[in-house]
């Protein structure tokens, strides 16, 4: 893990670390790399990936409304709303 990669990960995940947190993160990533080296010794060349542990197929449902909430309820927990819209800072100047 280098400085640039960590900065890229911070940006991708919308996080901003302090210098102390960054320092801890380098050690954390080093330890995870050690974990990975233990996996490297396992031969997986002829093994298929396993995304689901049980044979679960993509569920296709009929396109119909089964549950609905009114706008007021949906926005009740929002930090800031105005006339049915969520408020955020200006995006386009």
């Amino acid at each position: 893990m280098d400085k640039d990669t960590l900065r890229r990960l911070e940006l991708l995940n919308q996080l901003s670390l302090t210098e102390e947190q960054k320092s801890e993160m380098y050690s954390f990533f080093d330890r995870r790399e050690n974990d990975l080296s233990e996996l490297s010794s396992i031969d997986t060349e002829n093994t298929e990936r396993m995304v689901h542990v049980l044979p679960i197929l993509t569920v296709v449902r009929e396109d119909k409304i089964v549950q609905n909430f009114d706008r007021e309820s949906l926005q009740a927990g929002a930090p800031e709303t105005d006339e049915g819209y969520w408020c955020v800072p200006r995006v386009v100047e």
Partner: peptide, 20 residues
């Protein structure tokens, strides 16, 4: 700032590792 202020240190580490 919302995510940085609200998430704890361990969760942040897990998020960054997962993203990597």
């Amino acid at each position: 700032n919302s995510r940085t202020e609200a998430f704890g240190d361990f969760l942040k580490a897990a998020i960054l590792f997962g993203s990597d």
